[in-house]
C-alpha cells in the first residue's frame, strides 16, 4: 500500500503547513538579505553582492568570538564526557542505593532556568570568588552539558549487555581493558550523540553565558546580539548565514554517523 504524504485532513494539513512556514521561512529571509548590495536589513535585497560576507569575516569582534566560542564548546564538551561517562557507569553498573535520586541530581541543570544559573555563577564565582570569566564559563557550560553526557550515553549503556564485559573479565582481561575493548565500542553512538549535542548546545548558548561576558573573552551568540542592538545592517545577516552553513555541516555529520533523528531521541524524557 503506497500512501503518499497527502494532507489527508484539510484542517490538519493547513496547521502543518502553517507550522513549517513559522519554523523555516524567517531563516530563509535572513539568508536572502545577507546577499544584498544595499546597506539596510530589508527584503527584497537591493542588488546582489557578497560584500557583507567579506565585512563579517573581516570584523574582528566576530572572528575573535568565533574562536572563543569554539574553544569553550570543545573544552566543555570534552570535560562533560570525561566526567559524565564514569557517572553513567556508576549509575548503571554500580551497586548504589538511590540511583534514581543520583541520576536526577545530574539532570538537574536542565530544570533550573539557565539565566538563573548564569546569574548565580556571575555573583558567586566571578564577583564572590574572583574567578576569571573563562573559568566560570567553562564550569557553567560543563555542568550544563553533564545531563546530556549522563543521559545520552546512559541510553547506549542500557542497551549493552553487562555479561559481555563480565565474560572479558572472566577470560582474564583487566577491568580497564574490558572497558576499553568491550564497553567503550558499545557506547560509541551515545558518545557521538552526546558530543554533538553538547557542542551545539554550548556553542549556541545565550542565557547561561549572557552575564559572564568580559571584553577579553566574549562568545559569538552574545556578540551578535549586542551588534544588532547597535546597528541594523546586513552584516549580521551574513554572519548568521555563515553560522547556518556551519550548522548544516554539523547536521550532515550527525546524519552520517548516528542518524539525525536518533540524536534527539535521548534527551527529552
Amino acid at each position: 500500500m503506497s500512501r503518499g504524504l497527502k494532507l489527508r485532513h484539510p484542517v490538519a494539513g493547513t496547521l502543518a503547513v502553517a507550522g513549517y512556514v513559522i519554523m523555516i521561512v524567517p531563516i530563509l529571509f535572513v539568508v536572502a538579505t545577507a546577499f544584498t548590495a544595499g546597506s539596510t536589513l530589508r527584503f527584497p535585497p537591493e542588488g546582489l553582492s557578497l560584500k557583507w560576507f567579506g565585512e563579517a569575516l573581516a570584523y574582528s569582534p566576530f572572528m575573535e568570538a568565533v574562536v572563543s566560542s569554539l574553544e569553550l564548546a570543545v573544552l566543555a564538551t570534552a570535560l562533560a564526557l570525561v566526567l559524565g561517562v564514569p557517572v553513567t557507569l556508576a549509575i548503571h553498573r554500580g551497586r548504589l542505593p538511590g540511583k534514581g535520586l543520583l541520576e536526577g541530581l545530574f539532570l538537574s541543570p536542565l530544570v533550573v532556568p539557565e539565566l538563573v544559573v548564569g546569574l548565580a555563577l556571575y555573583q558567586q564565582l566571578m564577583i564572590g570568588l574572583h574567578l576569571d570569566n573563562f573559568t566560570t564559563l567553562l564550569l557553567g557550560h560543563t555542568a550544563l552539558l553533564l545531563p546530556y553526557a549522563v543521559r545520552v550515553t546512559g541510553a547506549s549503556l542500557a542497551l549493552a549487555d553487562p555479561a559481555l564485559e563480565e565474560a572479558a573479565r572472566g577470560l582474564g582481561a583487566s577491568p580497564l581493558r574490558a572497558f576499553v575493548t568491550v564497553t567503550l565500542p558499545m557506547l560509541r553512538p551515545g558518545l557521538i550523540s552526546a558530543g554533538l549535542l553538547g557542542f551545539v548546545t554550548s556553542f549556541n548558548n545565550v542565557p547561561l553565558s549572557l552575564l559572564l561576558q568580559t571584553r577579553d573573552f566574549r562568545t559569538l551568540p552574545v556578540t551578535m546580539l549586542d551588534y544588532v542592538q547597535q546597528s541594523y545592517d546586513p552584516m549580521v545577516a551574513a554572519a548568521s548565514t555563515l553560522v547556518l552553513a556551519a550548522t548544516v555541516v554539523v547536521a550532515v555529520v550527525a546524519e552520517r554517523t548516528v542518524g539525525f533523528a536518533k540524536i534527539f531521541g535521548g534527551i527529552n524524557r
Partner: peptide, 10 residues
C-alpha cells in the same frame, strides 16, 4: 541545532 539568535533574526 541552529542558534536561537540566528533563528530570531529572521
Amino acid at each position: 541545532l541552529l542558534s536561537n539568535v540566528v533563528r530570531t533574526f529572521g
